[in-house]
Structure formats: C-alpha cells, structure tokens
C-alpha cells in the first residue's frame, strides 16, 4: 500500500490508455506524457502498461506502507525520499514508512511515478487509466485525494542492489532540455481542412507564437494568438478526432485535443501534432508559448521509430542495471 498525504484532485492513476473503444465514444485517456510513464515503468522493472500516478498539481506527498521500488520521470521537479534527493528519470528502493515528496517543477508540468508491480486498481475496458471526464477507471473514476490508499499489484518483491538507485538519460528520447524562455516547438502534419484556411491563417499558424490559455486540462488546451479564418464557411459532419488534432472553432483560436479528447468532433481541423511530440504539450504549463512546425509523415513515423528503439534499449539496459536481489 501507499498512502497519499498531499495532492490535488487532477493527480490521477494512469497507464498507457485504453484502445479499442473509440467507436463506443470512449477516449484513450492514459498519461499525458506517455513516454515518461513508459520509462518510469521500465526503470521500476514493470511491464510498460503498468499503472502509475500522473502528478500535475504540486506539492505531492505519499507514504510507503511497505518496501518497494519506485521510479520518477517527466517534469523536472525537486524530489526527496526521507532526507535523500531523488534525481529525475531515476529508480530507487523505498522502505516502509518512507515519505516521498515532489515539489513545484523547475521546468515541465507533469511528473509520473511508477511502482514495482504497478498500482492495483481494477481494469476497466482493458485499462487502469482514470477517465476524469467520464468518471471511470483508475481509483473510483476520480482524481486522488489526501488519505487515499493505493495497493500495488502483488508479485515477487525485489530490491535494487545499488542503494543509490539508477537512472536513464532522457536526452536520447527528448533532445536537449528546452530553455525556460524558448517557445516549445511541435511538429505538425496538415489535416483535412488545412487547405481551406486562408494563406494568411496558414502563415500565422506556422510563424506566430501561441500561448496556452487557462482553459487547459487533460481534454485539451485552448490557445491564444492571431485569428485563423477559413476561405469559406464549412459545415462538417461529426467525425473522429485524435489526441493532437488541432481544431479551429469559429472564434479563430485553436484547440489542441489531448489525452481525454472527445472521440468525435465537428470543428475544422488545421493540423495534427505528431504522436512523438505530444509529450511536449504534457510538459507545457498554462502560459507557455508554442510554435508549430510543418513536417511530413515520414518524419513523424521516423520519430516514433526512434522512440520505440529508445524504449527497447532502455528495457535491456535497465534489466542489467537493476541487479535484483
């Protein structure tokens, strides 16, 4: 068991999300920063699909009620267990009674924690992810509250040989850290209505800086920036949309759909953030500045292949490093 000592209600149990139910209106959900959760799981010796905790509201504290191994990745935030510092992208032993504290991020917006075995909440439609919008999955379909106690999936209990733990270098996955004053650059592919936007709108879209408004959550982010208009009015029938789809409602200000996106929408779509860059949005806080850079599908697929290769290498390296005892 682990007990939550301080949290905000948007922090929730997440895994890599649900698949196979979009045609029932059930979205993917899952961690906003999927690669960070996958890395944390691999460091903790878990299956990549194990459930962990996504933290977007800080400070966050929990107490371990049994010995276990945990891993921490995602946002760069100060983390301590007892009086020891925990580096980012790191796995460590915890003993019963240890308190783990995550402070306000120095950069990034969402941290993830993985625990040996993964968090044991019921599988709902094949996943343990919390769908906060629809109120199912995770812990009773809701975010975490102080006093919640979460069980871990039972299995062989092992400990890391190195008391200091070990970590991964995420540079191979995400490139050099993004400077605090630099805009976040996301690669996008054009989507169905791209050609129906005015030349001016396309210029704005790819040249301007956009900022993330307060209206930003796991469903999506509303952006503010120059006005994007169509060359003619469009009446679209409802159609499938994805995390990463950039819609433009009649007010001319884009919305980026994210982990808890509705499965269908009707607004014109100008572009899609490529799958391999979605984590950048997960790590961009309200007020952050964004830029869109057009790319092509081969580049988008190559970026995913690179991510997949990183995970394969990491899984092999981590199993050597852990040196279970």
């Amino acid at each position: 068991m682990i007990e939550i000592l301080s949290t905000g209600a948007v922090n929730s149990v997440q895994d890599l999300g649900r698949t196979g139910y979009l045609d029932a209106g059930v979205g993917r959900s899952g961690a906003m920063d999927l690669p960070a959760l996958e890395v944390a799981n691999l460091l903790a010796g878990n299956d990549r699909h194990a459930a962990g905790i996504e933290i977007a509201l800080f400070p966050f504290r929990l107490r371990f009620e049994r010995d276990t191994v945990f891993a921490f990745a995602g946002a760069d935030c100060p983390a301590r267990i007892g009086d020891r510092e925990v580096p980012g992208w790191w796995a460590m032993n915890a003993v019963a009674g240890d308190v783990l504290t995550l402070g306000l991020p120095r950069s990034g917006a969402r941290a993830v924690l993985a625990f040996q075995g993964g968090i044991d909440v019921p599988l709902v439609l094949g996943s343990r992810a919390t769908d906060l919008k629809s109120a199912f999955g995770g812990l009773e379909g809701r975010g975490l509250n102080r006093g919640d106690r979460l069980s871990l999936v039972d299995g062989p209990r092992k400990r890391l040989k190195m008391e200091a733990g070990f970590g991964a270098d995420p540079t191979g996955l995400r490139g050099p850290a993004i400077g605090k004053d630099d805009p976040v650059v996301m690669r996008v592919l054009p989507s169905a209505e791209y050609d129906t936007f005015t030349a001016e709108a396309i210029d704005h879209f790819t040249q301007a800086e956009w900022s993330i408004t307060n209206d930003a959550n796991r469903m999506g982010y509303r952006l503010s920036g120059p006005d994007l208009q169509l060359t003619r009015k469009l009446e679209l029938f409802s159609h499938g949309i994805m995390p990463g789809t950039v819609q433009v409602p009649p007010n001319g200000q884009p919305i980026i759909q994210l982990a808890e996106a509705n499965t269908c929408g009707g607004y014109p779509k100008i572009a899609n953030v490529i799958e391999a860059d979605l984590w950048k949005l997960a790590q961009a806080p309200v007020g952050a500045r964004l830029r869109f850079e057009m790319t092509d599908r081969d580049t988008a697929v190559a970026a995913l292949a690179k991510e997949r290769a990183f995970m394969t290498d990491l899984a092999a390296a981590a199993s050597l490093m852990r040196g279970w005892m």
Binding site: G20, H239, G240, A305, R308
Partner: peptide
C-alpha cells in the same frame, strides 16, 4: 489497425504506423 471510428458519412482508422505503413 487498432481502431475504426465511423462518423457521419466518414470513417477514421487508427493504426500503428510502425506495423502498417501509412
């Protein structure tokens, strides 16, 4: 192919682009 999502006179398919070339 992971998902097929019929809309109103349209269809979205979701697939692993590393397993099935777009």
């Amino acid at each position: 192919v992971a998902e097929t999502v019929p809309g109103m006179n349209n269809l979205m398919i979701v697939f692993d682009p590393l397993a099935l070339a777009p």
